[in-house]
Amino acid sequence: MSNGHIVIGEIFGTAVLILLGGGVVAAVTLKRSKAIGAGWVAISFGWGFAVLAGAYIANGYSGGQLNPAVTLGVAIKTGQWSTVPYYLIGQIVGAMIGALLVWAAYLGQFQAHLTDPEVLASVAAPEPAPASAAASAPHADPAGPATGNTAQPGGPVLGVFSTGPEIRNPVQNLVTEAIGTFVLVLFILTEGMTKGLALNGLGILLTALVVVGIGLSLGGPTGYAINPARDLGPRIVHALLPLPNKGGSDWGYAWIPVVGPLVGAAIAGGLYRLAFT
């Protein structure tokens, strides 16, 4: 495959990944959505289907890696580093395009949520927190978790674009992201992604199911980015979009869903070389 094919494949595949993945979060969390309140299981399966669709679309062009952490793990396994920049370019650009498409698809819901009088009133006059909650306040996430936050109207909106921890503890958050990505990348490497070749159809399906499993089992603490492009690209878009009352983009946390997955991928790639080759 040519470098141009890699960039094009990763752009299209990652854009669809983010469109469907961010879309399910928007559907579950934003006001005036028919799926509001569908819950974490819906989000986990939605992201799994997003991986399935994006990887199938990109498979014939780039192998459908769609994730800098996967790209890193494959490069460590195969020793082929020359194509890594092309994968990264396609993934970041695709993630930003996908985030813009989510915004376009849910524009009315974003506006309805961010201008809803009930939401704005809850921010202006929040209910007093119990003593037990006050004790844990220093660790609270000001940007809100991936599925919403009543502390500010923009919390659920940021959650559509990027992840955030339920308990803000950088070490724990970093470890959680590394563990989840380790599972994903080790599975992909042992499934047969060698020498830059694409997974077969069954491999893509199984990978999507593993993503569902990671979401259900390990997604609770941080919202399981397990993909630096998935978090960074849409976070940039969130920062640029002209949405009222959207709040900040939580750049203080943004390094964790980038570094954590890369650490987990590097460990998976190194372990694969030690144990499986």
Rank of each mutant, 00 (worst) to 15 (best):
L274R: 05
V157F: 02
G233L: 10
P126Y: 09
G22Q: 00
T78I: 00
A178F: 09
W40G: 12
G39N: 09
K34D: 05
A55W: 03
L100P: 01
I92K: 02
P261R: 03
L241F: 07
L88N: 07
G223P: 13
I167K: 13
A146M: 13
G94Q: 04
P138N: 02
R273D: 10
E166V: 12
N200H: 13
R230E: 10
W255Q: 04
A208T: 06
P142I: 02
V263F: 09
G196I: 06
V212G: 07
F12A: 13
G192S: 11
I11Y: 03
A143K: 05
L240V: 11
Y272T: 08
A15K: 01
V119E: 09
P130Q: 11
L30A: 02
A268H: 12
S162D: 01
L202A: 13
I89N: 08
P170V: 09
A112H: 05
I97N: 00
L240F: 11
A266H: 00
H5A: 15
A137R: 14
I179N: 07
A55E: 14
Y253R: 08
Q172G: 13
A125L: 09
N245V: 01
G270P: 02
T14E: 03
G37E: 03
V259G: 12
L241Y: 10
G155P: 06
A229T: 05
V74W: 01
I8V: 15
G37F: 00
G9P: 04
G22L: 01
G63L: 08
G215V: 08
V102L: 07
S249Y: 03
A55P: 00
A15D: 10
P165I: 00
G46C: 06
M193L: 12
R235E: 04
L205N: 03
V74E: 14
A268Y: 09
T147R: 11
T190V: 12
P145C: 08
I43C: 04
T222D: 10
A69Y: 05
S132K: 09
G64Y: 14
V25D: 01
L240M: 15
L52E: 04
T190C: 09
S132I: 08
I256T: 07
D250E: 13
A129L: 15
D231F: 11
M193R: 15
K77M: 13
V16F: 14
S62Y: 10
M1C: 02
F276D: 02
A105D: 11
G37A: 07
S217G: 11
S33L: 11
A121L: 03
A26D: 11
A53W: 12
G37D: 03
G63K: 08
T147P: 00
I57K: 06
Y56V: 10
L66M: 14
L197R: 15
G203R: 08
I179S: 02
A35H: 08
G260I: 07
A15W: 02
I11F: 04
